[in-house]
Simulated scan of single mutants.
Amino acid sequence: MTRSKFTSQGIKSKHTKKLKKQDYTVFSQKLGYTFKQPDLLQEALTHRSLGFPNNERLEFLGDSVLNCAVSTLLFKRFLLLPEGDLTRLRANFVNQDALHQLASALGIGELILLGDGERKSGGHQRPSILANAMEAIIGAIYLESGFEKVDQVIVALYDPLLKQLDPDVFGKDPKTLLQEYLQSRKVDLPEYSMLLTRGDAHAQIFHVECAIPEFAIRTSGEGTSRRRAEQEAARRAYKLAVVRH
């Protein structure tokens, strides 16, 4: 595999850790794009724990490219959605959770190049590291092949999610979904009550109940905060309400 000698900064890389040819080939197939400059991909997969050069500058570039591409994609796909809903959808497509899912599907965690300490602490599974690497890869494609090509790659990556997307509910938290559902049926809002807390003060688990008396629905949820517990209880109540009513 031919390698370019320089990084995107025009600096010759001194890193000894390299991608294996087989890994590069498999990843290219999953990504739907083959780098003409394999060292550019390597840079995109190099975490700052290995020193400089690393993927932070490409991440910066990829963040802007991704926002533009996703904005264009949503603008063309959902012709009747107002600006506020488009903004909500975009935020949920480009946030850490979404990028982490894309990175995991591509197997980036197995390829990310980390310093020994970062790898031993589980850095190859850390959502923030994988999400940042995903943005860096997008930045690298843009740098090498321009916006039209990276846009094609981004559309292909997001297409499965878009096909199943309901823009009316995507990105809304469970409590909001439940509230809107009940209001549309002129039913009183749910009642949330604390059932119990357990664990030490610095690591408490909260148990909360969500009740909808008119639908005879009572669900419980737990979480590391009262808010998270309420969201889980609301999620379960919403699923029951939709099925039963």
Rank of each mutant, 00 (worst) to 15 (best):
T2V: 14
H15T: 00
K21Q: 01
Y33V: 01
T34R: 03
L40W: 03
E43V: 07
F52L: 05
E56A: 12
R57D: 07
L58R: 05
F60K: 13
L74G: 08
K76N: 15
K76H: 15
P82I: 10
T87N: 04
R88S: 00
R90Q: 08
N92Y: 13
Q96G: 13
Q96R: 14
D97E: 15
L99Q: 01
L99N: 00
H100L: 06
H100S: 09
Q101W: 13
L102H: 02
S104C: 07
G107P: 07
G109F: 00
K120Q: 06
L130M: 09
A133G: 11
I137F: 01
Y142E: 02
Y142T: 02
Y158Q: 07
P160Y: 08
L161Y: 15
Q164D: 11
L165W: 13
V169D: 11
D173S: 10
K175N: 10
L177V: 09
L177C: 09
L178E: 12
E180Q: 15
L182N: 11
K186L: 09
D188K: 11
E191K: 13
M194E: 14
L195F: 03
R198P: 05
G199R: 04
I205M: 05
C210Y: 08
A211W: 05
F215N: 11
I217L: 03
R218S: 10
G223N: 02
T224S: 09
T224D: 04
R227A: 14
E230D: 08
E232W: 01
A233R: 01
A234D: 02
R235I: 03
K239Q: 15
L240M: 07
